[in-house]
Write a protein that binds this DNA or RNA. Structure first.
Length: 508
DNA sequence: ATAGGGTTAG
């Protein structure tokens, strides 16, 4: 007869080795054998997600009065977080005799859904209750400040707090800081934190490489990679996702190929879907569509929607009707509800003057009731984040924003700017297309930034979609005429506009 | 003899 301890030890071993099926089987056999699970057992079995659903265990945990134990309660909370049930997780959290692990688990729950406010509110409560945070607390709450709508100021304050408590040097905290600063558009601060790290692990190096990649600083990413190799740190698959995407963002096709073979031949790392996806993106953006499709044909995976979207975006550049049709059909069949494929294909037909095909796409969208994904932009002014939706007029300063936009438009037109209406999907008159373009969320956010921040301040804008070509042109011109530095983080990378040009070199 | 929280990617 085995004791509850040996049963639990056996189950724990299975779960830690990802053999969930065997772990769950052991749990069942334990019950059948008449051995009652204890608090350790419940903590272990809750870790067997996604095969074990938290609600299945929750009732038993309540019945056995383990719900308030920090160990069981935290495991339960975390299991709810993993299925996206943050509200249930919070209810569980409120029941627990909270220790610092429970607090950190709740914070990382908010971080997972990018709820910066929820995380910061919880972090404040922790302080009010006189609880002493530790390094995991900081790593979690800082991680909750990486989302596009998070205020950069918030992250900075948490950095200061972590210094005050003496945790800023802990690896998990400093790597979270590198990622946070990079994602907030502040790559210089990210690098400063990276330089101050006394010791580094793989995650530290990867965070810095990915940060540089997102900002299109390929050479700097290579330098960090070289330094890493010099120090005999073995890169992993994630390192190469970072380094190849740095090549992708700058059009360095040969370098990308070099790193890919280095990964496979020298480091013997088996490429994953992400690596193929990077390579397809590398070729697509460089307009090498045949190469891109041959990668797809050769890979041992079904091409994901991301992969076809890269190809389709590349087709827009090269106007390859045949490949774009193939890519769009694949993409539409994978994601019939998403607008991206329809939009891109429609734009390609429009550019090729194929109006009949374009209107058929339009009809298909109407039939399937596909809505264009709404474009959002965020801008931080005086420590507060403002959200703009395309066509938005709900902002209190809406009149002044529009006035500013009109003023800028006429200035730009004098400089020879012509709106690039290729980016408008709707079948409407040219003048109306121009109006739509000039209601894009990033333009609204920029106008608001210009009227509400001092001349010397850098304007930082985040966007949920990729920045459109017309907005990109306009931002370059505006940055020049108003002599301001503007940083835009879109869903793909960062653009630094300064003196009439962009850090992406118009390659994005 | 058994337990819960964190970090890098597209």
């Amino acid at each position: 007869m085995h004791s509850v301890v040996s049963w639990t030890a056996a189950i724990s071993g299975c779960v830690q080795n990802h053999d969930l099926v065997r772990g769950i089987d052991l749990f069942r056999r334990m019950i059948i054998a008449g051995v009652k699970p204890n608090d350790f057992t419940y903590s272990v079995i809750l870790g067997a997600h996604p095969l074990v659903r938290p609600n299945e265990v929750h009732a038993q945990v309540i019945k056995t009065n383990y719900e308030t134990l920090p160990t069981v309660g935290t495991a339960l909370l975390d299991a709810y977080v993993r299925i996206g049930a943050i509200n249930v997780a919070r209810v569980v959290f409120n029941m627990i005799d909270k220790d610092i692990v429970a607090w950190s688990a709740m914070l990382s729950g908010y971080a997972r859904i990018e709820d910066t406010e929820g995380a910061v509110r919880t972090y404040m409560q922790l302080g009010e209750e006189g609880i002493c945070p530790n390094e995991y607390t900081y790593s979690s709450v800082i991680n909750a400040c990486t989302g596009p709508a998070a205020a950069a100021e918030q992250g900075k304050q948490l950095h200061a707090c972590s210094i005050k408590w003496g945790y800023s040097c802990a690896l998990c905290v400093s790597s979270a800081l590198v990622t946070m600063y990079a994602k907030r558009g502040n790559i210089d601060s990210a690098y400063k934190v990276f330089c101050r790290q006394r010791e580094r692990d793989l995650v530290s190096w990867n965070s810095m490489i990915s940060g540089y990649a997102q900002h299109g600083h390929a050479r700097k990413a290579f330098e960090v990679f070289d330094e890493m190799e010099r120090r005999m740190i073995r890169p992993d698959g994630i390192t190469f996702v970072g380094i190849i995407s740095a090549c992708t963002h700058t059009g360095m096709v040969e370098q990308g190929e070099k790193y890919y073979s280095m990964m496979v031949d020298h480091y013997r790392i088996t490429p994953t879907m992400e690596h193929y996806s990077c390579m397809v993106d590398l070729y697509s953006r460089a307009g090498m569509l045949e190469k891109a499709t041959s990668v797809i044909a050769s890979m041992p995976f079904q091409a994901s929607a991301t992969v076809w979207r890269s190809v389709l975006a590349g087709c827009r550049l090269k106007r390859n009707l045949e490949i774009s049709k193939l890519a769009a059909e694949k993409l539409i069949s994978l994601q019939p509800d998403h607008s991206a494929a329809y939009t891109l294909l429609s734009n390609i037909y429009a550019a090729a003057g194929k109006w009949k095909e374009k209107s058929e796409i339009r009809k298909l969208m109407d039939e399937r009731k596909v809505k264009k994904e709404a474009g959002y932009s965020w801008i931080e002014v005086k420590k507060k984040t403002y959200t703009f939706l395309a066509g938005d007029s709900s902002h209190p300063l809406s009149d002044r924003i529009n006035e500013k936009l009109r003023e800028l438009l006429s200035l730009l037109k004098d400089m020879g700017y012509r709106p690039d209406t290729d980016y408008v999907l709707h079948d409407v008159e040219e003048e109306y297309k121009e109006a739509i373009l000039w209601r894009h969320s990033e333009k609204l956010a920029l106008a608001f930034g210009l009227i509400s921040t001092p001349q010397e301040a850098v304007i930082r804008i985040e966007k949920n979609l990729r920045v459109c070509g017309d907005c990109h042109t306009v931002f370059k011109l505006i940055a020049k005429i108003v002599r301001r530095e503007v940083i835009v983080g879109d869903s793909n990378r960062f653009h630094h506009f300064k003196g009439g040009s962009c850090s992406c070199g118009d390659y994005w």
